[in-house]
Design a protein around this nucleic acid. Structure first.
Lengths: 144, 144
DNA sequence: ATATAATCGTTGCATTTGCAACGAAGTCAA
DNA sequence: TTGACTTCGTTGCAAATGCAACGATTATAT
């Protein structure tokens, strides 16, 4: 019976972040999943397309922290659902140019305010602690 | 062409938390995955068993924020690898009593210090921002 | 005591995931 | 131009995941 170091998972920052991330993501995801049948990867693709206009899978992979196969499949599902279109780029035919359809615009016109309200609520509930949290996250993102 | 609200995913807290959680978890997971072939769910089960002695799948589900089927299968893999044993509880035969084997003890005697070092490093690098981050996380965990 | 309900852990199943491999397209050097 | 190399997106495949359903056990109510 070796005696092990006393290690408490509840105080382990990577674990705590995982729990909190899951919790906050799920809160919003439940809403749009129930209402529109959108998954979290699909939501991320949509947001980036809505924000940046024409984007490629590569762009999504880089800017939205998602594996390219995951991004590719999320985009395929969104295309099948009629929310986006995928076209070969004119300038570089390796690239796929993804953009919102009219139906996708309507969807996002409803989704984005929901997300913004969720964010506002989060900020309001945390009050002063919110800025501290954000700063900590920034530090972690900047660190290697 | 409806014009959509200007929403920046980079400033969306649930997304930011997801990225940071992924990043910090992966940092440590790479180490023990390469060295011992342990996955993140398996790691969580091991930590809880090491910390609390005999535990059931239900305990793990409740205390480690993991679905019971996920916990069950992680435990099965750990049993197959010889790190834990599963026995029917004497007092309630629905429960499974999970505990570390000698081999599991040896494993954790190496893993836990690695994790603690990782945590210490995180704290040292963030300095004063660490406490602020932790407080923010606590707030989010306490909120519904 | 008996029937009903609740709890625990596992498993079947469809879906999602990560990774590597691939074809297609573009880049670069000689 | 040719050939080697890189980049982009998709897909095959095995593994992991979430959910519901199940058998086994225990708790509760009548």
């Amino acid at each position: 019976m070796t005696d092990l170091p006393d290690f408490d998972l509840d105080r382990f920052t990577p674990y705590r972040l995982a729990v909190v991330a899951q919790k906050t993501s799920e809160g919003l995801a439940r809403l749009y999943r129930a209402k529109f049948g959108i998954s979290i990867p699909e939501w991320r693709v949509l947001v980036h397309v809505a924000h940046s206009g024409n984007v490629s899978v590569r762009d999504i992979e880089a800017r939205v922290a998602m594996e390219k196969s995951k991004a590719s499949r999320a985009a395929s599902r969104l295309e099948a659902a009629g929310y986006i279109t995928k076209n070969a780029s004119k300038t570089d035919r390796r690239l796929v140019s993804i953009s919102l359809t009219a139906k996708g615009q309507v969807l996002m016109a409803e989704l984005l305010p929901m997300a913004q309200a969720y964010q506002n609520d989060l900020e309001a509930r945390l009050g002063a602690d919110f800025d501290a949290l954000e700063k900590g996250i920034d530090r972690l993102l900047d660190e290697t």
